[in-house]
Amino acid sequence: MLRMKGTGKMKDYNKIAIIFVAVSLCLSGADGTVEAAETAQFEQPLLITSAGQSAEVQLAAVLAKRATLDYTLSKLATSQELHGNKTLVLSLGASLKGLGAAGLDVAQEKGRVEELLAAARKLEVPVICMHLGGEARRGQLTDDFISTFLPHAKMAIVVKSGNKDGLFSTLCEQNNITLIEVERAVDALQPLGEIFPPEK
């Protein structure tokens, strides 16, 4: 059923920049690429939620499913839902349509995520931010969510085209966050598989 002529994107996976910022600057200068194995490890189960109610949260869930991770998807997760989870995944991307469908305005959505992050800090649950919408999911509103919430993350996994202007690189460098860039959303499958060791 796949209707795609080969674009060679998967073959390019070895080009994917897996950047562990502090180390990368020493190891490889401008390119700053290191292997995923050197990056931080996270534990399951995961709670996946949105920060901005864009549709990419569903992509994050499908990626987690394909990586056979133990996850819960809750687009409007609250701090109570964090209990029992060992990693919080925030799908960054603002959508006025998604916010409208959820019955939220921007302030309410930010409040929800802030409350969730406060609980994550208290419970010492690490945060992974994902930005899977690429360049098309950038803009003033999404950038506001990125700037507000990315600094709370331990790791960021982003589709490369969404980082054309270096916003993620800059924020990750400033906040000592591991940045993993992938060409396409589907390519996030591999780093996800690597940062979550198999459950015993």
Partner: peptide, 16 residues
């Protein structure tokens, strides 16, 4: 389904 690319949304430039 055929409106997804191996289960994921099509990216710009993909062939449909």
């Amino acid at each position: 389904n055929l409106y997804l690319n191996d289960g994921f949304p099509f990216e710009p430039g993909d062939f449909f």
